[in-house]
């Protein structure tokens, strides 16, 4: 699998864990997990992938990656 494809799979896997959690903000949890465990290059790549249409990303994950992008921009 290609590197981008692999990131999509990884992100969707996280999504499938966090989405069923109850009483928590799943999107925030996904974004937090990516933020804490992914190398900046990987985060940049997934953000770029979303910008390029985000093919294959599940809905809550798209939202989480979107928040990552906002957070990154806010940090600038």
């Amino acid at each position: 699998m290609s590197a981008d494809n692999r990131l999509v799979i990884m992100a969707n896997q996280m999504g499938r864990f966090f989405t069923p959690q109850r009483g928590v903000d799943s999107v925030a949890a996904i974004a937090n997990h990516i933020g804490r465990f992914w190398d900046p290059r990987m985060r940049a790549a997934i953000v770029a992938h979303l910008a390029a249409g985000g093919a294959g990303l599940d809905e809550p994950v798209r939202e989480a990656v979107g928040r990552l992008k906002e957070a990154k921009e806010a940090a600038r």
């Binding site: 692999r6 804490r36 465990f37 992914w38 190398d39 900046p40 290059r41 990987m42």
Partner: peptide, 11 residues
């Protein structure tokens, strides 16, 4: 910032 994990290093 966190660094690369082993599989990420390979990629």
């Amino acid at each position: 910032e966190p660094g690369l994990r082993i599989p990420n290093m390979f990629d």
